[in-house]
């Protein structure tokens, strides 16, 4: 797991209140929603808030969110592909 993925994993665990989990429990390429980590659409909205608060990246609609939230690795890549905001 890369350093940016590790940091993001910790933010997800804290932000989504995933009790008793550590970043190592999140497999970078495993789905975050449904079968993988088991998150649902309420978590998805919270995840959008976490990404916006921590990285200044706004996910305006959930069709974009669906692709960005495919996995930890996908979300990390998505955030780093966005122009940094002040």
């Amino acid at each position: 797991m890369s350093e940016s993925q590790l940091k993001l994993a910790q933010q997800i665990i804290t932000g989504l209140n995933l009790e008793g989990m550590s970043p190592a429990d999140i497999v970078p390429d495993a789905p975050l929603f449904g079968e993988g980590l088991g998150l649902d659409s309420i978590d998805a909205l919270e995840l959008a808030v976490i990404v916006e608060r921590n990285y200044g990246v706004r996910i305006g609609n959930m069709d974009v969110g669906k692709k960005a939230f495919a996995s930890l690795a996908a979300l990390d890549a998505f955030i780093r592909s966005q122009p940094a905001k002040a």
């Binding site: 989504l16 209140n17 995933l18 009790e19 008793g20 989990m21 088991g38 978590d43």
Partner: peptide, 10 residues
């Protein structure tokens, strides 16, 4: 209550 499931965290 605390140890049932990490997905209960919320």
């Amino acid at each position: 209550i605390g140890r049932v499931d990490p997905m209960w965290g919320r």
